[in-house]
Simulated scan of single mutants.
Amino acid sequence: MFKSRMLALGLPLVSIFFNGVVADAATRIPNGCRQNVFLTISGNIGKTTNGAKNAYEMSEREFLALPTSTVTTSTPWTPRSDFVGPLLSRVLGEVDAKGKKLRLVALDDFSVKVDADYLEKYGTILATSKSGIRLTIRDFGPVFVMYPRDSFKNELDTPAAASYLVWQLCGIEVE
Results as ranks from 00 to 15, higher is better:
L92C: 10
D96N: 11
V112C: 04
S89F: 11
G123H: 09
A162K: 07
V91D: 05
Y147G: 06
A160N: 11
G132Y: 12
F63L: 00
A116H: 07
N154Q: 13
K113S: 15
K101M: 07
K101P: 03
K113R: 13
L104V: 01
L135H: 02
P67R: 00
E120Y: 04
I133S: 13
V91P: 05
S74V: 05
T128C: 07
Y147Q: 08
K101R: 09
L102N: 00
D108F: 04
D109C: 11
I125M: 05
S89M: 11
G123F: 12
G93A: 10
S81M: 11
G132A: 11
T72H: 11
D82F: 05
L135C: 04
S89W: 10
T73Q: 08
S89H: 12
T158E: 02
V143N: 06
P86K: 13
D117V: 07
R90G: 10
T70H: 09
T158F: 00
V145H: 08
S131R: 13
P76T: 03
S151A: 15
V95S: 00
G132T: 10
E94Y: 05
V71H: 08
P159E: 00
V112N: 02
L156N: 09
K130Q: 15
R80M: 12
R90A: 15
V114R: 04
L66Y: 00
R80Q: 15
E60W: 02
E62Q: 08
E155W: 07
T158K: 03
E94S: 07
S131F: 11
T124I: 12
P67N: 00
P79H: 09
K130V: 11
S74T: 07
K153Y: 14
Y118Q: 09
P67W: 02
A161D: 06
F83S: 07
P86V: 11
P86C: 10
E94D: 12
G99S: 03
A106T: 01
S131K: 13
D82A: 13
R80I: 14
S111F: 13
K101C: 01
Y164A: 01
M146D: 08
